[in-house]
Amino acid sequence: MALTDADVQKQIKHMMAFIEQEANEKVEEIDAKAEEEFNIEKGRLVQTQRVKIMEYYEKKEKQIEQHKKIQMSHLRSQARLKVLKARDDMISDLLNESRQQLANIAKDPARYSTLLEGLVLQGFYQLLEPKVTIRCRQEDVEMVQAAVNKNVPIYKEAVKNNIVVKIDQERFLPADSCGGVEVYNDNGKIKVTNTLESRLELIAHQMMPEIKVTLFGANPNRKFLD
């Protein structure tokens, strides 16, 4: 039985509806798949950027922590240097005060003459030369001469050798010297410095560990004691 035009149009509409339905379903499927892929890609990108951001801030945090450690180390070093300088200044003040007090020794003739005798005799023993020259303060010449007169026999008896002693009358110790003597060999190339200042420096050097312990206490980081 032949189809009428109406039947043909009806079938065509039915086929077009079916094709349109298939197309719509396909579009929806494609959209759903695209949406899924979009969400997956978006999630991947978000996670990647999150990791990058976390790594960036972790790196920044480490840099800040390192900078903080450097700054703290620098501040500790500065503080340590200030403490050391303050200690050095205190020791310098103590030594300067001691030097000022040295001048009082020469003001006591009995005490000073005994001290000069020991310094002169020690100079003789340190040089062990047949001829020596002594340099002293101008105001001490007579007292030094008396010390020489007393010590020459003692030296001769001790070393069994003669000694000729000259007191330098042209060059004296500096005017601000606290006293004592310098003893030279005959050609002046060897010198024994036995001034009060030099003796103070020697004693201060030898006693510096004890002085520091007395002033600042024992060093907790020091493992061995001399």
Rank of each mutant, 00 (worst) to 15 (best):
E36C: 06
F38S: 06
I40Y: 13
I40W: 10
E41W: 12
G43F: 08
G43N: 14
Q47G: 11
Q47Y: 13
Q47R: 15
Q47K: 15
T48F: 12
Q49D: 11
R50W: 12
V51M: 13
V51D: 15
I53V: 10
M54T: 05
E55L: 07
E58C: 02
E61Q: 15
K62P: 10
Q63H: 07
Q63V: 03
I64F: 12
E65H: 08
Q66W: 09
Q66M: 09
H67C: 11
K68V: 06
S73H: 06
S73N: 12
S73R: 04
H74L: 15
H74W: 15
Q78C: 04
Q78M: 15
A79D: 02
R80P: 00
K82W: 00
V83Q: 04
V83W: 00
L84E: 00
K85D: 03
A86H: 04
R87D: 07
D88P: 01
I91V: 08
I91L: 15
D93V: 02
D93W: 05
L94C: 11
E97N: 05
E97A: 14
R99S: 09
R99C: 10
Q100K: 12
Q101S: 12
L102Y: 02
L102A: 02
N104V: 09
K107A: 15
K107E: 13
K107V: 09
S113G: 04
L115I: 06
E117W: 00
G118S: 15
G118M: 13
L119I: 05
V120F: 04
V120R: 00
L121T: 01
Q122A: 11
F124H: 01
F124K: 00
Q126P: 02
L127I: 03
L128K: 13
E129H: 02
E129R: 00
K131G: 00
K131I: 11
V132N: 01
V132K: 00
T133P: 06
R135M: 07
R135E: 05
